[in-house]
Amino acid sequence: MATDFWASSHNKRWIVDRATLKQARSEDLQYVESAEHIDFLNIYFANLIAMLGKRLPLRQRVIATATVFFRRFYVKNLYCETDPFMVIAACCYVAAKAEESPVHIKNVVSESRQMFSQEGYGIKNFPSDNSKLAEMEFYLVSDLECDLVVFHPYRTLLTLCGREAAHAVVSEAGEVGVGIDNGPRYWGTGEGRLELGEGPLQTAWHVVIPYSNLTERCAFELFHRFIINDTYRSELCLLYPPHMIAIAAIYLTLVLNDKTRDAIQAQSAAPAPPPRRSSRTNTGSAHRKPAPVPQQDFVGFMAGLRVSLPTVAMIAQEILSLYTLWERYSDTAPESGLGASAASGVSAGDDVVTPAFLTQLLLRMREARLADLAHPASGQPMATNKRLGRTQAVG
């Protein structure tokens, strides 16, 4: 397994540009009313992977790897021509193997059927035959080109904060080849560390947003969300290297965490230190005051990293945009006064978007795609996509 990100397949083949992602979703966009629906589907699918991973149960790193596999698969495939729920199960199954935490295929099938059939998801036709998942595993690994080594932002975050050796999360979230670091540090000079306390460091995993800044229905949901984990609800893992996402999480931490934000503001408002007097003017060492503990230069630390800070700011802005969109998504049915249209399957404006609406949206997309394949504008029926055929057989 590779320990060098720059020489890995992750960097060479699976960091794509926005034009590639736009092309991958171009046909799906023909079957939705708004491009925002695709963004809501990104959140929906990532939440499903996380919930299925917790039921199996899988470590957070395995869940993150499964989400990356899912994103990569749909760079080459369409939502309207596949069964995303079967793909989710296959991604969790393959990711558990890739991260050396295997689970039995029967458990994956059983837990998937139970979870997807719950009220709110309504997937009653998830197959109980293990061979269906085994077949989907074959097609998944084929489309992934057998590139199963995935790098995540966790190790960079811990290393930059000086916690790689001491923090308890290292064994859980450490990158492939923890402790192997003989080459140049791609995140900076390696001479300094950002000494964050437990509170700010945890903020790098989760964001704490003041209650007053949120609408009432989503305030509780946005408390203590993990910043890095939340990025998998978007396509950032396909667009940027993991160390850039980690640095963007640190940047947001410095801004959102009360202690670090106050420290930065105090440093910017503090007057310049007085010139140092000669030691010959001192009356004696007995009357000297202890030297003050130097404060960390957070701005200088960020500026000293060998990365593009405009890119870091762009990633941070996209994360904040994700949270803004996430405010309109709820895994639970909304109350009667918060948007009955979302509960009935209609999404518009600022209504709450629910899993039930998105499940129905997927069904409508698939039906419309089938109709287009059967009755194209040319008058000649188009060849049915193989995976769509398998989806019909499963149903």
Rank of each mutant, 00 (worst) to 15 (best):
120 G>I: 02
7 A>W: 01
197 G>E: 09
317 Q>Y: 13
57 P>N: 09
144 L>Q: 01
233 R>M: 11
288 R>E: 15
262 D>I: 08
149 V>Q: 11
345 G>K: 01
230 D>C: 06
141 V>E: 06
95 A>I: 02
192 G>N: 14
199 G>S: 14
61 R>W: 03
251 Y>I: 06
306 R>H: 15
191 E>L: 10
138 F>R: 12
28 D>E: 04
285 S>E: 14
234 S>Y: 01
364 R>F: 05
166 A>S: 15
226 F>W: 10
174 G>E: 05
280 R>C: 12
178 V>H: 11
141 V>P: 00
14 W>A: 03
170 V>S: 15
187 W>K: 00
354 T>L: 01
296 Q>V: 06
360 Q>A: 11
370 L>E: 10
189 T>E: 12
368 A>K: 13
225 R>P: 02
363 L>A: 13
66 A>E: 02
129 D>S: 01
383 A>T: 15
89 A>D: 01
278 S>E: 10
333 A>V: 13
347 S>K: 09
337 G>R: 13
307 V>A: 04
13 R>W: 02
329 Y>V: 03
289 K>A: 14
383 A>W: 03
260 T>I: 02
46 A>R: 04
168 A>W: 14
136 M>K: 08
381 P>Q: 03
366 R>P: 00
163 R>V: 04
379 G>V: 02
83 D>G: 06
336 S>K: 14
164 E>V: 10
57 P>T: 04
378 S>F: 04
391 T>D: 14
181 D>E: 13
242 P>H: 05
310 P>C: 00
302 M>C: 06
29 L>Q: 10
314 M>P: 03
112 S>I: 03
81 E>M: 11
131 S>M: 12
17 D>V: 02
100 E>H: 01
84 P>L: 00
57 P>E: 09
112 S>M: 07
74 Y>A: 02
238 L>I: 05
253 T>P: 01
131 S>V: 12
380 Q>C: 08
359 T>V: 14
243 H>P: 03
148 L>H: 01
294 P>D: 08
105 I>C: 04
271 P>D: 00
153 P>R: 00
375 H>M: 13
15 I>T: 07
224 H>F: 10
156 T>E: 05
189 T>Y: 09
55 R>P: 01
